[in-house]
């Protein structure tokens, strides 16, 4: 039923022949690890923004891929979105990762949803909306994912520009001191400090039985 798996070069060729000029860049990286040095392949394909869905459809036609995640990077005037797929899983040592990259201008940060092709994409698309300020057109569930509901509008943690996290929002947990606005402890300070000083003097001293004797 299934045709023989394509090699990484054949996959890139297939994309190039399908989209021609639409493929801006295609790189195959090979890496070897372990003693036997079996190679694993990572394919990176940059496509024109409007070709995102046709490119994913082409991939689905080759073999149904697994969408690992959509990553995003803020690069100056544009946002780079990386749709990382893995393809040919289940073939021993035959799986490749394939990343489809598109560049989205910040002036019009809109991408179509791919959840109609890959139902599992909703989650990661929701995350890109809140983290990078991208609008995913047609997303079935546009709510926030990780950020709290009262998180300020127009601030996106992964942005490197003025829409990123402002200094004022950063809390340095290490410099928080013991709060002063606490009510007094429910017990008078005296016995507790006494016990504390005892404790500090000799932590190994079994003091609880001693207390028992005192109590009785």
């Amino acid at each position: 039923m299934k045709p023989a798996p394509l090699t990484p070069q054949e996959i890139v060729e297939h994309f190039r022949s399908t989209f021609g000029e639409g493929i801006e860049e295609a790189v195959i990286r090979e890496r070897t690890e372990g003693v036997k040095k079996l190679p694993n392949y990572n394919i990176w394909i940059t496509v024109r923004q409007d070709l995102l869905k046709p490119a994913i459809q082409t991939l689905i036609d080759i073999s149904f891929p697994h969408l690992a995640v959509i990553s995003g990077v803020d690069i100056a005037e544009q946002i780079e979105l990386l749709y990382t797929f893995t393809i040919y899983f289940g073939v021993k040592h035959g799986e490749y990762t394939l990343t489809i990259k598109i560049l989205v201008p910040k002036s019009d940060p809109r991408v179509p949803t791919i959840s109609d092709l890959m139902p599992g994409a909703v989650f990661t698309e929701r995350e890109k909306q809140e983290m990078l300020g991208i609008e995913v057109v047609g997303i079935p569930d546009p709510r926030r994912l990780f950020l709290p509901d009262d998180f300020p509008e127009g601030i996106y943690p992964w942005r490197k520009d003025e829409k990123g996290i402002p200094e004022s929002m950063i809390k340095n947990l290490w410099e928080v001191k013991r709060p002063k606005d606490r009510p007094a402890p429910p017990l008078p300070e005296k016995p507790s400090t006494k016990e504390c000083s005892m404790e500090c003097a000799d932590p190994l001293e079994p003091k609880t039985p001693a207390k028992e004797v005192k109590k009785e």
Binding site: L147, P148, P157, I165, M169, I170, K171, N172, L173, W174, V176, R178, P179, R182
Partner: peptide, 21 residues
Amino acid sequence: ESGGVYYDSYNLDGPIDDVIP
């Protein structure tokens, strides 16, 4: 206690003794 490895963040309200005694 002190944030530990998460010593700075935009989404944390800790450490715990800043919230409850």
